[in-house]
């Protein structure tokens, strides 16, 4: 039975999304439609959570950024056809799987150390 579920879910997966991790700073180019016009909106921030892993068609990730002093978090389905592309801007060095602690910090305290080695490896 679970094999048949895989047939359904595998067809939904996208291969072209780069492997980013929690703590990365990314730019998500997301297609939004206004009326009948479609344009691409970039959303830039830190990945604070990945839900369900990359190989799951239902997987999502949360990107947090600060806009005019307010924290904004957006949840994107990783395999959504609305995502035009995801660019990795910075690899962060983090020791948690979920960066919820960033919600209580702002400014300098909310910085994430950059991982130097990761960039050269990937």
């Amino acid at each position: 039975m679970p094999d048949l579920m895989k047939v359904v879910e595998q067809s939904q997966l996208r291969e072209d999304i780069p492997a980013f991790r929690v703590g990365c700073t990314v730019r998500v180019n997301y297609r939004i439609s206004e009326g009948n016009k479609e344009r691409i909106q970039a959303y830039e921030g830190v990945v604070i959570r990945k839900h369900l892993g990359d190989k799951n068609s239902k997987a999502t990730f949360t990107v947090r950024k600060m806009t005019q002093g307010h924290g904004v978090e957006r949840i994107f389905p990783i395999h959504s056809p609305r995502i035009e592309s995801v660019q990795i801007l910075k690899h962060g060095h983090v020791r948690r799987a979920k960066l919820y602690y960033l919600r209580e910090r702002r400014g300098k305290a909310a910085r994430i150390r950059e991982k130097i080695s990761a960039r050269s490896r990937s």
Binding site: M1, M5, H79
Partner: peptide, 12 residues
């Protein structure tokens, strides 16, 4: 019945 899931439609 095999199970439940979610799928994307053409409009995303």
């Amino acid at each position: 019945k095999i199970g439940m899931s979610q799928v994307f439609q053409d409009n995303g």
